[in-house]
Amino acid sequence: MTIAQETAKVPSRSAARRRNRLDIREGRTAFFFLLPSLIGVILFLVLPIIASVVLSFTNWKLLGQPAFVGFANYVRLFTVDPQFWPVLRNTLFFTAEYLVLNLVISLGLAVWISSLKVGQKWFRVIFFLPTFTPGIAVAIVWMLIFAPGGFFDFLMGALSIHMPSVLTDQNLAMQAVVVVSLWAGVGYNTVLFNAALDMVPANYLEAARIDGATAWDRFWKIRLPLISPTLFFGTVMTAITSLQVFDQIYVLTRGGPGSATATLGYAIYQKGFQNFQMGYASAIAWVMFALIMALTAFQFWMQRKWVHYDN
């Protein structure tokens, strides 16, 4: 008989259960495959993160020896620096206004586009175009539009509205930054929400129709709740990017007039690369990170109230 039924006479079972040579070879292959990525990630991601923490506790100014100053940078930020609170306020103000307007406009456009019978994809492309162009170029074009004697002034004049020069006005400058950011940024969310609306199964809407729901009800009670997870995703991502706003401000206002449009992103650049206060700028960066994390956590906490997951 060629079969020997399994028995307990197997010798050295535990000894034989070492890791197989093939497994070890596979692990080695994995190591070599990961190596380029690991080197890059350690050098340009992990090391900078650690360095950023350490730097924020020093007073390094690029030249000379850095000295450990404990929490002095953070203390100075919150208690001494006269610019910090305005900067923080500007950042939050921009984020709030931009976030709300972006979501309202992009959702509106997405719904409007989805109501079309033909040509949806062309409208999507049109609103998406600025997303794929350099933010700097966009800002420069808008700067020409807002320039004194430029197209915006001409338009206001034609409408007999008297307005100060937008980019040099304490209040209007931030509004200009918001407008430019919206033009550059609504496209992505428009396509995102439009895609989500496309994916709402038609039978839900048909069922609601048979149940006698009006178009208004179908939108607010069926479509909107069904795409709420995507709305949430768009909200979180938009909030994260808007807290870091920099390009538009660099071109349009350089944080001015005064510090009317200076945001955290601009402050990091200014302190770090114009005043070379690397330690201080790093502390601002960590405040920004804390803000991003806090806002994201807040949104995740809020989502229980308005986001519906279907499983």
Binding site: L45, I49, A51, S52, L243, G265, G272, A285, M293
Partner: peptide, 23 residues
């Protein structure tokens, strides 16, 4: 390691500008 990779996606680019420049 995969979770660590995912974690780094949370770090905004602008935060790393200063240490990256120093490197």
């Amino acid at each position: 390691l995969l979770m660590a990779y995912l974690g780094t996606l949370m770090v905004p680019a602008i935060m790393l500008i200063i240490p990256l420049f120093l490197i």
